[in-house]
Computed example of a mutant assay.
Amino acid sequence: MSTDDKRIREFAYQIWESEGKPVGEESRHWEMARKLAEAEALAPKKSPKAAAGKTSAAKPAAGKAEDKLNGKAPAPAAKTKAKPAATAAKVTPPGEKAAEKKPRAGKKPPAV
């Protein structure tokens, strides 16, 4: 099995799970997964280091040049945290509606 087939299989499984594991939708899931895998393969690839280096290096460099001209000490760079994978948004396949989240029920007061 090629890596493309494996990726399509992974996408199809994720779609199947996200729809509540319905029976008889295999061909539709497989076609949606194939389209997602094609789009992923055609998307330009950037390394995480290159993307992070461009955004974080551009802002402080401008501030340092200004500070040198004004004789001031450079301000510390702001740090940002990456989102954990568990809280990342799920991808909704094309042509599908996003599942609406149910509101969480509040805690019940303790029985007296």
Rank of each mutant, 00 (worst) to 15 (best):
V23K: 07
P74Y: 02
A85E: 15
P110G: 15
A41Y: 09
T55W: 07
S18K: 06
A52G: 11
A39P: 00
P84T: 14
A37F: 14
A82I: 05
K83I: 10
W16T: 00
A89M: 02
R28F: 01
S56I: 14
A73K: 07
G24R: 00
A78R: 11
K79G: 00
T80Q: 03
Y13T: 13
V23G: 01
H29Q: 01
W30Q: 12
M1A: 14
V112A: 12
K68F: 12
A43I: 00
A43Q: 12
P94D: 07
S27N: 00
R9Y: 04
S47F: 05
S56K: 05
K6E: 05
I8E: 12
A51T: 15
E10Q: 14
Q14E: 14
T55N: 09
A86Y: 11
K68L: 11
A86L: 11
D5M: 07
W16M: 00
K45I: 10
E25Q: 09
E26C: 00
A62S: 08
N70K: 14
A41L: 10
G71S: 02
G63W: 06
P48V: 02
E19C: 08
S47G: 10
A86Q: 08
A51E: 13
T80L: 03
T3G: 05
A61R: 15
P109V: 09
P60V: 13
E40Y: 13
A73G: 02
S2E: 10
K6I: 12
K59C: 01
E25W: 01
P48G: 01
A82G: 02
S2G: 11
A88M: 10
W30I: 05
K21F: 02
K107M: 09
E66C: 01
E31G: 02
A99T: 10
P103I: 05
A98T: 05
I8K: 03
A105N: 09
G24V: 02
K49R: 09
V91S: 03
K45E: 12
E38H: 06
L69W: 08
A12G: 07
L42Q: 14
P110D: 12
A12I: 01
K45S: 06
L36E: 09
T92V: 14
P94W: 01
E26K: 06
P74I: 01
R9S: 15
K79T: 01
